[in-house]
Amino acid sequence: MAVFKIIKGEYKNKDAIKNVITYIWGKEEENKTPNNIFGALGVDYENINLTISQFEKIQRVYRKDSGKRILHIVVGFSKKEVFSLQQYLSIGYDIAKLFGGEHQVFFGLHENRKNKMHIHFAVNPVNVYTGEKIHWQKQDIVQLNENVRQIVLKYRAKNIKNRKIYWWHLLESREI
């Protein structure tokens, strides 16, 4: 069963962006990123320092470099939900597009110790065009969860015929 989760955390300190992006970059042993499957919209993802500085620059330009600095979202897949690396990358981009091209998004595919795949997303809460921060209500999170679920179901349909469809669970529904 796939899982959508907004990671709890205030992410208000000055190193929040660096910490989340470095974690997603996944160079630690227990946090492997298979075959360097990364993607991004609105930022460079070939150079970690450039990615971090581009997130920070948008926040400085709009003077929104206080409060919540980054959103950390995870979409996890069960062992029954097996996709090719290209499909995981496509899923990542489809989910990143849910932010309408208005927010910088960096993501990376991880594999945990139990060989379960999951995609981490770092989202800049500051809109690159308006400078406004994301202020989600419960219904916004429910809709995001449903949109992510539909994306994964689309890829499952390509891979799995006549299998039971697992429903996503909204693990956190608090305002951000």
Rank of each mutant, 00 (worst) to 15 (best):
G9F: 00
E10N: 14
E10K: 13
A16R: 00
A16I: 06
K18T: 14
K18W: 08
I21M: 04
Y23Q: 14
Y23V: 15
I24G: 02
E28L: 09
P34W: 10
N35P: 02
I37E: 11
F38Y: 15
D44L: 03
Y45M: 03
E46P: 00
I48Q: 01
I48D: 00
N49Y: 05
T51M: 01
S53F: 02
Q54Y: 03
E56K: 05
V61F: 04
Y62R: 03
D65K: 07
G67R: 01
K68T: 05
K68S: 03
I73Q: 01
V74Q: 02
G76D: 03
Q86P: 00
Y88R: 00
L89H: 12
I91G: 06
G92N: 12
Y93C: 07
D94R: 03
A96H: 02
F99G: 14
G101R: 08
Q104F: 08
V105C: 05
G108M: 07
G108F: 09
L109T: 12
N112H: 07
K114I: 10
N115V: 12
M117W: 11
M117F: 15
H118D: 12
I119M: 07
H120T: 10
H120G: 12
P125C: 09
P125T: 10
V126N: 13
T130R: 00
H135L: 13
H135R: 14
H135K: 15
W136Y: 13
I141F: 03
I141S: 02
I141M: 07
V142R: 01
L144F: 09
L144R: 05
N145I: 00
N145H: 07
E146S: 11
E146Q: 14
E146H: 08
V148Q: 02
Q150H: 08
K158V: 15
N159R: 09
K161N: 11
K161R: 14
K161W: 10
N162Y: 10
K164R: 14
Y166W: 05
H169D: 04
H169P: 02
L171Q: 05
L171Y: 04
I176Q: 01
